[in-house]
Design a protein around this nucleic acid. Structure first.
Length: 423
DNA sequence: ATTTAGCGAATTACCACACGTCACA
DNA sequence: CGTGTGACGTGTGGTAATTCGCTAA
């Protein structure tokens, strides 16, 4: 039974990459995000409660938007339209995912919408942005001396990578703290560097493998929907996306999460009510100073939050749900997500024809009978020979048509009644 | 710094009914 | 096994209403 369920879950997860092409054509981003986080029943407590320091990698240090302001994602690239639109910024995401248990509505309800913000959803900490790719900028975002607090109140803007410029993971090889910055995504670079550090850090390895208090977002492969991509998103004891070679969800989930608010990087949650990273840690992160965790590369990395509980058994609880419960919710979420229909495609052309020709009243479909009564010329008399009378009749008809135009939509009206056919 | 009003844009709900699907005889 | 029938659910588009995001006061 468990194997079957696991297999089914795997199948669902494996389809996420294929889904993206469909999702790119989503016509209703808000609906999508509701589907994703409400209908999908992921809202609430899938992720740990909100003592999370979310570290942002951004591409525009001069952006004026605040860290809590909804941001346009790919505003200038409709072709890569995201099902996770700008309104779902990280603050909202936190609200969706981190609603405290006391505020959680019925988890079985499909119309769950956690509060948009709450005192328990702190501002997101972020790093200053790396520069745009244009030109020869090679600034290191970690060189900025901005504090976490400063960063939290500074602007940011989600990055808009050029998928075509992103080499495949296979072509690029594993990330290294010594490698030159790739020509593609800055976020990719820093995420790779951070993950490299994680992979070289026993503490992080343990956390990734079972720690309940630390989450990591690893996005190495570039935009989703392309082959050869890899990445994972790990949060609060729940693997939400794919670890490379681990057979979890595909990079689309990482990209989706990324595009929710332009967030890319690592975040950590300490189970204790204190910052996930100490000030020293953050300085190390920002400055990229020589730190044991960096392996002497001088590149920034992240430190594991101390006292991370190891989650060896499934009874371990983060927030309100156990690991199994979270997995179950994730499963349901993924299942529903894959059932979404993002693109508006005419499935039955005949029905479109019918809908087009169907009478309407204020845009709504109307009964044929009702409309028929209205459209029947009441007592038109075509026996008048006088030209003025004919003109008067035409004017009356035009007035009637004008009334009908208000009753029925103009577009639908034209299908059934034209002045020529009436006169 | 915060609140409020106003505006435009985006999104959703609503409607009738032909047609597709399914179960059953 | 193939066919016919009935019940039920789905899909279709234009408009009004609603929601959202942003700006100015």
């Amino acid at each position: 039974m468990e194997e079957q369920e696991a297999s089914m879950q795997q199948d669902v997860i494996n389809t996420t990459s294929e889904q993206l092409s469909v999702e790119e054509g989503i016509s209703s981003p808000i609906a999508a995000q509701i589907l994703d986080f409400c209908d999908g029943d992921v809202g609430g407590d899938l992720f740990p409660p909100p003592d999370i320091a979310l570290l942002r990698f951004t591409d525009d240090v001069n952006a004026e938007a605040s860290a809590t302001t909804p941001l346009p994602c790919y505003a200038d690239d409709d072709a890569s339209f995201s099902p996770f639109p700008s309104p779902l910024d990280s603050a909202t995401l936190s609200a969706l995912l981190d609603a405290p248990s006391a505020q959680l509505p019925d988890p079985e309800a499909d119309d769950v919408l956690p509060a948009a913000s709450s005192p328990l959803n702190p501002p997101l900490a972020m790093f200053p942005a790396p520069p745009p790719y244009a030109g020869e900028h090679h600034l290191d975002p970690f060189d900025d001396q901005m504090s976490m607090g400063d960063a939290a109140t500074s602007g940011y803007r989600p990055y808009s990578p050029d998928p075509a410029a992103v080499p495949t993971a296979a072509a690029r090889g594993p990330p290294s703290c010594h490698q030159q910055r790739p020509t593609a995504s800055e976020e990719e670079y820093y995420a790779a560097a951070a993950v490299t550090a994680m992979q070289q850090t026993p503490g992080f390895a343990g956390i990734l493998e079972g720690g309940g208090g630390v989450g990591a977002l690893y996005y190495r492969g570039g935009m989703a929907g392309e082959e050869g991509r890899d990445g994972f998103f790990y949060a609060g004891g729940m693997m939400a996306a794919a670890a490379p070679g681990a057979g979890f969800a595909g990079p689309t989930d990482v990209a989706d999460y990324h595009r929710m608010g332009g967030v890319l990087g690592l975040y950590a949650q300490d189970t204790a009510p204190k910052p996930a990273y100490s000030t020293v840690d953050l300085q190390v992160i920002r400055g990229g100073s020589q730190h044991p965790m960096t392996g002497g590369c001088g590149k920034p990395t992240l430190l594991p939050a101390p006292d991370i509980p190891v989650m060896d058994d499934t009874t371990f609880k983060v927030g309100r749900l156990s690991v199994e419960e979270r997995k179950e919710k994730i499963h349901r979420y993924m299942k529903k997500r894959n059932e979404r229909n993002f693109s508006k495609k005419i499935k039955y052309a005949c029905r479109k024809t019918l809908a087009d020709s169907r009478p309407r009243v204020r845009g709504r479909f109307a009964r044929n009978d009702d409309f028929g009564e209205i459209t029947k010329p009441s007592s038109s008399n075509h026996e008048f020979d006088d030209e003025e009378v004919v003109v008067k009749e035409e004017e009356d008809i035009l007035d009637s048509l004008d009334i009908l135009a208000h009753i029925s939509g103009v577009n639908s009206f034209k299908y059934n009644f034209t002045l020529e056919s009436w006169i």
